[in-house]
Design a binder for these strands. Sequence first.
RNA 1: GCGGACGUGGCGGAAUUGGUAGACGCGCUAGAUUCAGGAUCUAGUGGGCAUGCGCCCUUGGGGGUUCGAUUCCCCCCGUCCGCACCA
Length: 857
Amino acid sequence: MSPMSRYDPAQIEPRWQQHWKEQGTFVATEDPEKPPYYVLCMFPYPSGSGLHVGHPESYTAVDIVARQRRMRGFNVLNPIGFDSFGLPAERAAQRENRHPAEITRERIDYFRTQMQRLGFSFNWEREVSTCEPDYYRWTQWIFLKLHEQGLAYLAEVPVNWCPAQGTVLANEEVVDGRYIETGDPVERRVMKQWMLRITAYAQRLLEDLEGLDWPEGVLEMQRQWIGRSEGALVRFEVEGGGEFKVFTTRPDTLFGATWCVLAPEHPLIGSITRPEQRQAVEAYVAQARNKSDMERQVAADKEKTGVFTGAYAVNPVNGERIPVWIADYVLSTYGTGAIMAVPAHDERDHAFARTFDLPIRPVYTVEGVEHDFSASAWPGDGRAINSGAFDGMSVSEFKAAILAWLEERGLGERQVNYKLRDWLFSRQRYWGEPFPIVHTADGGVHPVHPSDLPISLPHVDAYKPTEDGQPPLARAEDWLHTSWQGQPATRETNTMPQWAGSCWYYLRYMDPHNTELPFGQDKVAYWKQVDLYIGGVEHAVLHLLYARFWHKVLYDCGLVPTKEPFQKLFNQGMILAWAYRESGGRYHAPDTVERRPGQLSTIVSAWTGLPVETDWYLKGAETPVEEKLGKMGKSLQNSVDPLEIVERYGADTLRIYEMFMGPLEQVKPWQTSGCEGIHRFLSRVWRLFVDDQTGETRPFGTTSPEVKKALHIAIKEATEGIEQLKLNTPVAKMMELVNACKGEAPAREEALAFVLILSPWAPHLAEELWQRFGHDRSLSTEPWPAWDPAALSGDSMTIVLQVMGKRRGELEVPRTASKEEILALARQDPQLTRFLEGQQIKKEIYVPGKLVNLVVG
RNA sequence: GCGGACGUGGCGGAAUUGGUAGACGCGCUAGAUUCAGGAUCUAGUGGGCAUGCGCCCUUGGGGGUUCGAUUCCCCCCGUCCGCACCA
């Protein structure tokens, strides 16, 4: 060991990283003697730009939990891997004319280098990468299970086609008519695609949310996405032949239905439209078809559009003849694609009635409320009117009664509907899992035998569609043509979406090198499920819903023992960074600008187009720039590379700063200068135990009562903080402890306890000190210290003295002092006398161990 | 529009079965040490008046409950996130 006087993480950290690697300190084995604990951070997509300082936030939090659980005697699984199929690598492959596998491996290597320099106690021996054949072989295997269960099917469906990406996208990937990743516009097309029947699991996906320790917001988002609603399916006959069904959650308003509306895609339109309306209807349907999703959604705020078919339907409850319209405010993909319109009690129908001057008939009144039905709908409860024998009922009474009435007469039935739709599972891309499916000339669709897996990705001459529009895999002629039971056959040329690999990676980590199965039953029986899953809230719906779905299918196949994959979920808040932009729009990196307090300029904001005041300027120039907080990335020129921080301050400083910034779940701005304080803190810790002149380990001292108290407070805060993932305040308590030491090392016992509680946050420094204290083994399995409740408060306590609720002084009394003694002292305390003079004490309040409040008057 | 989270010094944040508001840190100011330092140490740092002890104000704004409110209740303002014609 070279002599080192000052705290020098560049010397300490690589050595301990090497030590952990060589000793296999964090290798996880299935030890039946120890309770298992499975922590997991959402694995990264290895992008071309490497990690930025936002990534280590969740890794650090997970690592702190993992390290502390090991010290508490748990057998910890803390794996890591890479979500490595996907579009960005394929686009890079097109640009650079290289194989995406090669590009991906390089990127993974860089990610791994970055991550390993941060000292995480990952199970690197279990690393997986979803694009490797020994991984995707089992993704294909699970697909075969889904297929076998009837949950994967081919269908001719309207899809979200993204011309810029040359592929279809799932509904979940499209927001406002654009691809969420790139913002490219999306249009509708009808294509034959692989679908997964996630809707078959809708009810269970909803029900099993109960009992999960997840953030309320995520549970709510999942519930809304599944979108269960109870109602009725009601049959309407069309005059002159034909019938359609509508779904309604308000069958109790059937008597108020004054027309019906079919979605423009409804199959009945052709047959019921009257000749005199045909031209108008066809024009409307064509126009609706050509509208993009975005245009349709924008139109939601505008005036409703629609066209009358000329046909009439019969209201089953009263035999009334009501017109049938077509309008694009009715969605073809929800319910039956047809509705009954009750303008008096539904806002949307009311808006339509106003536009086309259709009749509005109330079927509820509210006592004491004079509602103007020509102005707005009344969606609430009331007393039924205009509804024959049902008059006088409340909404819930009426619903029950009318459902029974409809079912008795065969006019309708109870129905539960979900917003959730089946999952579009095909992509027309190269860089994804090939489907283990072949097609024969007779139209047969056949799963390949599991022993033939993996169906490997073939080499192709270009990562783009064929001349006739087939997906890239169709370019691999040799691969494409195969046989099935003696017949010539062609392979499926679609690939799976990026979500596929991440649907089950947490299971593969349990048994990553199994060549017979995706994971062994003994392994999954031991680890069971993920105890704690930490990741970004951006996966609240898509990834978590898909993974839960696959997990339930595997559960039904008897392959996993639990119904749910992730028992506790925690969302870390995104780390943002300040971005600086000239009025003209150019961005500047944070280290090229400076603040000049008092020197204000007014510029036109490139973001809003409005004038703003700023005191930020380009360094060495008079160019003012506007400051704004944003997501880290290339576009805002505000990314910070963790390695840059490691070089300057060390990995321990980076780790602690990421935690110290604020509550884990909160969005917070990165400030590199904040690392200074952490680095100072760690230097102080170093100097407490190491002579910074000689580099020698200093002898232990004695522990003062204040230090002892501060230590036990810190142990308590660290222990409870890790339990609740409040990882910022323990750092503050450890700083207070070090401040309390006033540069003097405490006694051995307290020094050891301090280093142990520091170790999850600053593992390198802690190991170094631990070794200097004379240990020859890593501290990673040393028992976690316990706090002594008696040490939390000293022999005396501080009582705050208040008069009329205002703080007027304080009192130091022995712990043993009684309420009477304390009150007596308070009454004659010199700090209070001038507030008590001439006043009578009306009330005395004593909060044990905390304060006295004297009420006078 | 609906749902969720939130609003505390120049900045990040701490403190909620109601009990010392501003812990801890950044930044800033002054001083010490140093050839020098993005080094280290000491002191100060919410605002105002006094600058002696002290007093008043202050947790987005307004009201309420209470001996006492950042914490509980009502109204308003603002920010962020998710969903958005789902019948």
